[in-house]
Amino acid sequence: DGRIGRMAVLAAYRGHGIGEALLEALVQAGRQLGLAELPLHAQLPARDFYARQGFLPEGPECEEAGIGHQQMRRRLQAVAAIDSRTEAVAITTAIIHRARRRLWLHSRQLDPGLLDAPPVQAALRRFVTARHDKQLRVIVHDAAAIASAGAPLLALFQRLPSVIQFREVADPIDRALASACLLNDAGDFYFRLIGHRLDGESAIALPARSQPFEQQLQRVWDRSRECSELRALGI
């Protein structure tokens, strides 16, 4: 039925990407079998590991053999609905973690409560400080409000302006957009029609579905102005 049962890496070999490679091999095997989804029952300490690979939590935590567990699932061929903050944090973390070289973020005011969640912040720091050439393009609607709020992403931008680029929408049509979107160059996306809410739709490794969102963000980016005023550190 496609259920992933037990995964383990010898203690001496952990922290080297072996677990992620093993999990990706299982995902590819599921695709080759034509499975629509892969469910698993994760121990709570491993929940973030699976979330980084696009497995979304489902339902409440439970206890099994005295150990806390979380049911999780990754869809392979279809869009998944995001209905809770827990799911929103998981899919946001996955999209950032799985990005190869480019990330797009369209958010009116940098989504307090989502982008500042610890797993998301850890993924962002890992992405922007990686050795390979990386680029995070951020489109916002109110740069002044973001500056006064002092969002964590703004602090990263001020330290790494060559990696993170900010633009503020200028065209009246773009300013009327109420949606929010996060996507990467691996075919992953998380789109919210109403940007101040977390419910929306997402997909992992479905480039045909993510490409129209990227094309739209590129058009908005081209019409927007550079937020040079956000570069100044508050000293």
Rank of each mutant, 00 (worst) to 15 (best):
L40C: 07
Q215N: 15
W104H: 09
E61Q: 13
I18N: 03
R231F: 11
A94Q: 02
H97F: 04
R101S: 15
A51P: 01
E58W: 11
E64F: 05
R73A: 05
Q135N: 12
A88V: 02
E229W: 14
R192G: 02
A155M: 09
I164C: 04
E87D: 11
E201F: 10
L105K: 03
L233P: 05
G30A: 13
N184H: 06
A155L: 12
A232V: 10
V220W: 02
A144L: 11
I18A: 05
G59N: 09
P207H: 07
A208C: 10
G195S: 08
L160Y: 14
L193N: 13
P112R: 06
Q211E: 15
R6H: 01
E214N: 07
R101V: 10
F55N: 00
L22R: 00
P45T: 03
A149Y: 13
L38P: 00
S202W: 03
H97P: 02
R75S: 08
E64V: 07
S210C: 12
I91K: 01
R167E: 07
M7Q: 03
L103C: 07
Q32Y: 10
H132R: 13
D48M: 05
P45Y: 07
R47F: 04
R167Y: 06
G17A: 08
Q70C: 09
A143V: 05
T129G: 05
Y50A: 01
A232T: 12
D133T: 13
V120C: 05
P39I: 02
E214G: 14
E20S: 11
A203M: 07
V9A: 01
R85W: 15
A208S: 13
L10K: 09
L56R: 00
I204R: 01
H141V: 02
V79P: 04
A178L: 14
L26G: 06
R14E: 09
S228Y: 12
P152L: 07
P161N: 07
F191H: 06
W104V: 04
R52D: 00
A94G: 07
T86W: 04
A151C: 14
I139H: 04
G15M: 08
T86R: 09
A99V: 08
A88E: 04
R52Q: 14
H106Q: 15
L183H: 04
